[in-house]
């Protein structure tokens, strides 16, 4: 199974400048473990030592914020699209 992951500019130093990488895992936690094998250091930028998401990072599975669908335990299926974005101020 394969999942497509969109990486924000600020984290591309871990992916050799690639914007789009792929990985696999039945959950988001497994996906980040898998990604870290090819893209060292990426996981630590997104996942805290305590095993949660960093405060200023948002992760979406098919456009759904994972904090509302189980966090790092969110289930993944083949063909899912994962997007990582820094938390920024919106329009106002």
């Amino acid at each position: 199974m394969s999942v497509e992951v969109r990486v924000p500019t600020i984290l591309r130093s871990h992916t050799g400048g690639q914007k789009l990488v792929s990985g696999s895992g039945n959950t988001l936690a497994e996906l980040f473990d898998d990604l870290d094998r090819n893209h060292t250091g990426l996981k630590a930028r997104v996942v805290t030592e305590e095993g949660g998401l960093h405060r200023f990072v948002n992760v979406y599975v098919n456009d759904e914020d994972v904090r509302f669908i189980g966090g790092l335990e969110a289930k993944l299926s083949d063909g899912d699209s994962v997007t990582i974005l820094p938390a920024v101020a919106g329009g106002m």
Partner: peptide
């Protein structure tokens, strides 16, 4: 919540600690 996802320029922080949650 419907959160706008802008182009990359808007997420152009120098580091993640500059992130912002209201």
């Amino acid at each position: 919540a419907a959160e706008p996802r802008y182009g990359e320029l808007v997420y152009g922080l120098r580091n993640l600690d500059e992130g912002f949650v209201p």
